[in-house]
Design a protein around this nucleic acid. Structure first.
Lengths: 236, 236
DNA sequence: CGTATTATTGACTCCATTCAAAGATAGTGG
DNA sequence: CCACTATCTTTGAATGGAGTCAATAATACG
């Protein structure tokens, strides 16, 4: 462990209003600071954790992006979600003390850890954080409910929703809402959205012809956010 | 409020190992007993809560079944889940202090309430229950992940999974795993699974011709659980 | 008993998949 | 730095699974 890692703490982290410290007081942030293990760095393709591994804690992406992946028994990969900085993962490890899905870095990535062995401590001593973790997990439930409903919609709506959802989440984290690099292949996007990679390709072309987006390889620019948003009609 | 309602308590409830008291000690069960509001009764079609309503608490189905429903802005209903006795609902109310989805009784139903106003108390004073609630919410995340992956599979697998999932959950609750009454129309099943009602009708017929199930109106009997289970290949 | 809702069945249609082949891009080593 | 290779993307054509439409049958309900 080097000094640079130790420098990371929640107090001076730009994600403090999104990540673990959301809703906590200064004192509480100080106290979780002693619990959170500072960031670890990974590169594209490396595993943050694997399905089946023992629960090591709830994690927070500090920088970079990741995909959450489930494997069925045929060996098929299912991309459950894309994770952005400030987003938490690993809640499922709380069930039977092991992770049920894998998380893989999509690009150079760093993350912080709320270690499994301190979870009990948190429930006993930091009720505000327990509550916050609970709220986070409830939010994930809502995310998946949205995915689930969206899964019944036509391909065009699914892709539009995916792009807008990314845009919204990036904006919330201080990144550009209209211009970003998506470290996913067409294959991976299709996998995540339950569509063939050819369908993704055709739809991206269509969106470009309609001047909704511009897209060169992995660089995506949304040219008309409201019109793209209007494509998927489903709202809570 | 009548005496009969007051008689309900977690200590003598048959669902104590599934519902709120799961994993709690006798003393802790005594203490939550004072928090949990005893059962309320509803009839088919009545709302347990409506999307948009203020969060009144996390609920537990005591008897009967319910559907969890989301409405898109076109007024279309989306059945997110079917709830059985001992299952908890209303976690989403924890976000912004309101429910985001509705819950509707599918038949005569009774439920218990862990009131919203005591949630803070629980986080501060009953860490074991906080932890248990957190675990429950994490399990719901996993449920929806499973739905999400399954949503990409063909119609036959989805219906097979739905029936087996019901069977498994009923068994866990002490009901018959092979014979049950499903208070859902073909329309509702189709809605939940993202299929047309005609598709449900055709598939149920097919399953019957293959001697996998027998089904007279709402009464379903699974004749060959292993073979029905083998239809959906996806496993965690 | 009659009416409304729900279920079945068939015919046709369409959206997205699959198959196939060519084109673009990125990464590697000489 | 360029050539070479592997991977990824685009595009077209054909196929198919599930949806839609429609008409009839069965069931539930007041």
């Amino acid at each position: 462990m080097n000094l640079k890692q130790n420098n990371v703490n929640c107090k001076n982290c730009s994600l403090d209003n999104i990540c673990f410290p959301r809703g906590l007081s200064q004192e509480e942030i100080n106290s979780i600071n002693q619990i959170i293990r500072p960031k670890q760095t990974l590169h594209r393709g490396e595993y943050i954790f694997r399905g089946g591994e023992t629960f090591k804690g709830v994690l927070a992406i500090k920088s970079g992006t990741a995909k959450q992946v489930s494997n069925d028994f045929d060996g098929n990969e299912h991309i459950l979600n894309i994770l952005l900085p400030g987003e938490l993962l690993g809640f499922d490890g709380f069930i039977n003390n092991k992770y049920h899905y894998s998380a893989i870095a999509l690009e150079t990535l760093s993350y912080c850890v709320l270690p499994a062995q301190s979870m009990d401590d948190i429930f006993y001593k930091v009720p505000t954080l327990s509550k916050e973790l609970f709220r986070h997990s409830c939010e994930r439930i809502n995310d998946y409910k949205e995915f689930y409903v969206l899964g019944k919609r036509p391909a065009e709506e699914r892709l539009a929703h995916f792009l807008i959802s990314l845009s919204d989440r990036l904006k919330k984290r201080g990144f550009s809402a209209s211009k970003f690099t998506l470290s996913l292949t067409r294959q991976e996007m299709g996998n995540h959205l339950g569509l063939a990679l050819e369908t993704i390709s055709r739809l991206l072309k269509k969106f470009q012809q309609e001047d909704l987006i511009s897209c060169k390889s992995k660089h995506i620019e949304i040219l008309d956010i409201p019109r793209l948003r209007a494509i998927f009609t489903y709202t809570e």
